[in-house]
């Protein structure tokens, strides 16, 4: 079941191609990582989905119906550039934003109370935003994004400006919202959070989508039979593997990274290695999202 579908979207800013024929499908209940270097077109795509700007061609669907300004209310969007009315009180500000999103006054008030309590902001209810620390203002902004229980939550760099404690608090809230049925899109270049939270990813570079799918599938696809071996002594050169690097571990063993050159799978490599050194561990090296990201983005650069 997909919640959001984007079909062949293109957008041109007076001569500059911001998005070129991008299609995406985001499954319901997933945490979707939208990755890409700066200026790749992530924000443009999000702004098209949230109807802030209009695409030149292509369509975006939420729950199989084309997104209209009314449907945008089912989306909660946390922009990368955070902003709140500095001179407004926390409670009033949240009430205003919630009302703009169509919540009734009573409903909004009770939800605000609940959320402020959850994020430990209750004592700040009647303080002006300008009196809050940056981290607290960010939390208020997060509440503003999710207050109206949107089906789709779009978070642009959600952890920037948070200390580790608060970042974890927000992370838990994101997972909780997902468990309650929301779908989350992450737009980020902080790969560790993607590694930890996302189950689907898409990579956008130079206004084109170059990769998307389940995180596990993509990782498998990018495996290149590289193995990490912990062993005693040093590894003599051999035609069975290509030596990449090695280092000494805390326990005095050597950790070597090698690429399998044998035919027929890891067992053959192990056989060859057993004859040469004493093996303590043998693990396949799964590429991190970060590595995939850099390889893809730089590969593109080299081609050009």
């Amino acid at each position: 079941m997909e919640l959001l579908r984007v079909e062949n979207i293109s957008k041109n800013y007076s001569g500059h191609q911001a998005l070129n024929d991008v299609s995406l499908s985001i499954p319901k209940g997933s945490i979707f990582g939208l990755l890409g270097p700066n200026g790749a077109g992530k924000t443009t795509l999000i702004r098209i989905i949230t109807k802030i700007i209009e695409q030149d061609s292509g369509k975006a669907f939420l729950n199989d119906s084309e997104i209209t300004p009314e449907l945008v209310r089912k989306i909660g969007y946390l922009p990368e550039e955070r902003g709140l009315y500095k001179k407004m009180k926390v409670g009033e500000q949240l009430l205003y934003i919630a009302r703009l999103k169509g919540l009734s006054r009573a409903d909004a008030v009770s939800k605000i109370k609940e959320w402020l309590k959850r994020l430990e902001l209750t004592p700040w209810h009647s303080k002006n935003i300008e009196d809050l620390s940056k981290g607290m203002a960010q939390k208020v902004q997060f509440i503003a994004t999710v207050l109206h229980k949107p089906d789709l939550i779009i978070l642009d760099e959600p952890f920037s400006g948070f200390d580790p404690v608060n970042a974890n608090l927000i992370k838990d809230e994101i997972l909780r919202l997902r468990d309650q049925g929301a779908t989350v899109i992450f737009s980020t270049h902080r790969m560790e959070s993607v590694e930890e939270l996302c189950d689907h990813i898409a990579l956008i570079n130079k206004s084109e989508k170059i990769l998307d799918g389940k995180k596990i599938d993509i990782k498998n696809e990018f495996k290149d039979s590289t193995f990490i071996i912990t062993h005693e002594g040093s590894l003599p050169p051999s035609t069975d593997f290509e030596f990449i690097s090695s280092s000494i571990t805390e326990t005095g063993l050597t950790e070597s990274i090698v690429k399998d050159r044998t035919e027929g799978g890891p067992n053959n490599l192990v056989k060859s290695l057993i004859e040469k050194v004493e093996i303590h561990s043998f693990v396949e090296k799964i590429p991190s999202v970060n590595e995939i990201f850099i390889r893809q983005v730089q590969g593109e650069t080299v081609v050009l």
């Binding site: 949230t50 945008v72 969007y77 922009p79 550039e81 902003g83 009315y85 500095k86 999103k101």
Partner: peptide, 10 residues
């Protein structure tokens, strides 16, 4: 203050 992006979405 960039509040505009928050508001403009609704």
């Amino acid at each position: 203050s960039r509040i505009i992006e928050v508001i403009i979405a609704s």
